[in-house]
Nucleic acid binder design. Sequence first.
DNA 1: TATGAATGAGAATTCATTCAT
DNA 2: AATGAATGAATTCTCATTCAT
Lengths: 188, 188, 188, 188
Amino acid sequence: MKRKITEKSIELFEKKGFSQTSIQDIVDSLQVTKGTFYYYFSSKEQLLMDIHLEYITDLLGRQQQILQNDLITNKEKLKKIMTLLIDDIKDKGANGRVFFREIRHLINENIDKIKQKRTLFRLNIEKIIQDGVNNGEFRSDLRTDMVTFGILGLTNYCYNWFNPNGEVTTEQLIDTYVEMILHGIIKA
Amino acid sequence: MKRKITEKSIELFEKKGFSQTSIQDIVDSLQVTKGTFYYYFSSKEQLLMDIHLEYITDLLGRQQQILQNDLITNKEKLKKIMTLLIDDIKDKGANGRVFFREIRHLINENIDKIKQKRTLFRLNIEKIIQDGVNNGEFRSDLRTDMVTFGILGLTNYCYNWFNPNGEVTTEQLIDTYVEMILHGIIKA
Amino acid sequence: MKRKITEKSIELFEKKGFSQTSIQDIVDSLQVTKGTFYYYFSSKEQLLMDIHLEYITDLLGRQQQILQNDLITNKEKLKKIMTLLIDDIKDKGANGRVFFREIRHLINENIDKIKQKRTLFRLNIEKIIQDGVNNGEFRSDLRTDMVTFGILGLTNYCYNWFNPNGEVTTEQLIDTYVEMILHGIIKA
Amino acid sequence: MKRKITEKSIELFEKKGFSQTSIQDIVDSLQVTKGTFYYYFSSKEQLLMDIHLEYITDLLGRQQQILQNDLITNKEKLKKIMTLLIDDIKDKGANGRVFFREIRHLINENIDKIKQKRTLFRLNIEKIIQDGVNNGEFRSDLRTDMVTFGILGLTNYCYNWFNPNGEVTTEQLIDTYVEMILHGIIKA
DNA sequence: TATGAATGAGAATTCATTCAT
DNA sequence: AATGAATGAATTCTCATTCAT
């Protein structure tokens, strides 16, 4: 039941937004009662926290896999991480959208905890870029922090428009973006 | 008074979010009463609509200036539009953040009206890229729509982290991003 | 309206107790809506605080009148204060009962504020007794603090059983208690 | 287990009040579950009734012991009964406070049943005083009913302030009060 | 004996909105 | 142009109680 509530909530939060979704909405669509909700979650915010925590924890875990792979170049690592983010749109689109949009509704320690983990994810990317700069894979005249933010913005934005069931495949999207990041759009 | 309400609202919407900001919050911080608010706005949503409309209209106007300039290359135009977006963080940061984050709270015709204008803004960018592809400025093997979304994601995301009063200047940021978009990060 | 809410609340709190009385009960019996309640009071507890504050402030004010009277003996002062408390049962019975019974529902600073004033009221009585001991009106072998608590218990308890419209008049009650306190019940 | 629930409940009811204490609070602090509670008690009120009944029954029993003693004067009996009440603060303070404060939460027949027994306890005291008046131990010009209420108020109030582990011993307190009741505070 | 999932009725509170003045 | 009292619908949350196991 807890799982069912979480999943239905993600669905509704994505469709209508966190504050526009009431506990009543959630339980009604599961045909249970409010009491049931509060049996499993102590508050609406705690549910949101659960969702965030699960998402970022999973993301960090998969990022870690990539980081630990010593056999691939930094360029490959970067590509894999971009793939990681964009691939999720297919499997966890709603999840991701809730993750990116509704963090504002977390408060105090909760928001800090999540932000810390988000920062870690970002710094891990920055590290890859820095490594790539150091070993000559990447240009050395760009600020790694800003590049990282750029890549994150570019990939995260996909959650707003990309439809994995549309005419463009996820692979094409990833190729386009990797190509763009690596070589730019200008004619050499 | 109408202006004062609008401005204070933007400030509060940015700080606390649209749904977390009550009409009471707005009028309290201006030391007027709710009646005053409803004298100038027919509803909370209409205020949000006003804010959105003003923002996107202004943005489109300035974009138009750039588009009409026949003396510059498409590459220059693209740079100018990116500058346009990022520059706003200094002057209208709160405004922009409200614009990007709170569109969800518009309803029905309103949301359509704004989305149409946003789409226009995007298509205008795509047009520049297409023109650049056509005249050989840009590579011809990239999907212009996706590239456009990428650029938008990259620039919009700045609203989330870039502090125009921080150690990095807006110019450095723009340079980094233009460079990244045009030539990529890989060592040639 | 604020006054009406306060008065009806006192009535209901007395009859059913603070936690057994809902805001709904209060507004229903006044034929207004919950919104109206919250227009005047920020919370249920604040209403209770209002009631307490008004009561104890009034009590302290009247006590002060008695204390400042230099023309009467301490014995007379004591009698007047007992009269003060018991007389209230006629005019403010419900008020007093709420005051004595529901203090538990105040929290934190509120409870402290009220308790402080209650303590002041008690210490003022103790002072009278001490003065009476000093000038020989009262016996010198009694602990003034405990005697004060005793007098308070004795008078406060009246709120639990005394019916000012019953066969015993308030005057008789006061006479009995003053006599009991001053001379005891044993046959001299 | 039933005993453990009762005792923990008394503790919690005293600390937080009956309505502020949830069944959940009770079972949590015993590390059992709500089912356990309802195995032993049919309702929250029934638990409160149990507590009241046990308390007043015990009190009446001990009062009976005193009443039946034909070898002591009424004055002595009165002192013993006051001792009975005040002594309990040491052993059953919480119990007594719950008994005096939470009777309001009993309903219908329950409240009547308890009130009857309380009345009996009071009338037993009144009887002693009447006997004392009749045999010349006590003054004949005081209303015995009111005197009884006075004594009850005075002693019951101790539950609100008296700390048996404080600097004043229970014996001193009893002496002071017996002295006060018997001889008054005025200098003879 | 005891558990724990689920209920449902009701609680306090919030807030956009209306409207007579 | 502005006020402020009042509304009412919705919202989050609480909790005593039930019941199958």
